[in-house]
Amino acid sequence: MSDRSDRTDHRDGAGRPGRHVFEYALLRVVPRVERGECVNAGVLVYCRHAAFVGAGTHLDASRLLALDPHVDLAGVRAALRAVEGVCAGGEAAGQAAHDDAGRRFRWLIAPRSTIVQPGPVHTGLTADPAAEVRRLLDLLVR
């Protein structure tokens, strides 16, 4: 009799791909910190089992401009692209290029006082971390 933890295909009892713990955090744009208002503009997803870290972003410029008509949209877009680059790894990740997925995720979710800020970390189960990026982006951002 084999122990289920020895399985390499990680399938559940019904033969479906197994689900694994993942963590996620929203990326919020806070144009005026003193007002505390924000617009969700992205999501970060990390799954240790899959060595996956990914980001999806979507900036609703009209909502953001309603909070602050003078917000630097180009700067916000550049910050969101930088987050995507860190998740992608390689040269786009800059100094984090050689860090593993978990380290890049932890760096991205560290509290910041900049205009683009990570929200609290939440957890879930998934068989496909990349699909979670798309699902959470549609559910929580768009």
Rank of each mutant, 00 (worst) to 15 (best):
M1L: 00
M1G: 09
D3W: 04
D6Q: 10
R7C: 06
T8E: 03
D9V: 13
H10S: 05
G13A: 13
G13W: 00
A14P: 00
A14S: 11
A14Y: 14
R16C: 04
P17L: 15
P17W: 14
G18A: 11
G18S: 03
H20A: 14
F22K: 08
Y24I: 01
Y24N: 03
A25W: 10
A25K: 10
L26I: 01
L26V: 04
L27P: 02
L27I: 03
L27Y: 04
V29P: 07
V29W: 07
V29Q: 05
R32G: 03
R32N: 13
E34T: 08
G36K: 07
E37M: 08
E37G: 05
V39R: 05
N40D: 14
A41F: 15
G42N: 01
V43M: 07
L44P: 12
L44G: 14
C47Q: 14
R48F: 00
F52I: 06
F52A: 04
F52E: 02
V53W: 01
G56Y: 02
L59N: 12
L59F: 10
L59H: 13
D60P: 04
S62I: 04
L65S: 07
L67Q: 12
D68E: 09
D68A: 13
P69T: 11
V71T: 08
A74P: 00
G75S: 06
G75Y: 04
V76N: 06
A78E: 10
A79F: 03
L80E: 07
V83R: 11
V83Q: 10
G85E: 02
V86K: 03
V86T: 08
V86C: 02
V86N: 02
V86P: 05
C87H: 05
C87L: 03
A88S: 15
A88Q: 15
G90T: 08
E91N: 02
A96F: 15
A96L: 15
A97D: 10
D99C: 13
G102K: 08
R103S: 14
F105R: 01
R106E: 15
W107A: 14
L108D: 12
L108Q: 12
A110D: 13
A110P: 01
P111C: 06
V116A: 06
Q117W: 02
P118V: 01
P120N: 06
T123V: 15
T123S: 12
G124R: 11
A127N: 04
P129V: 00
P129L: 01
A131H: 06
V133I: 06
V133T: 04
R134P: 00
R134H: 11
R135I: 01
R135F: 03
L136Y: 05
L140R: 15
V141I: 14
V141P: 09
V141R: 09
R142W: 08
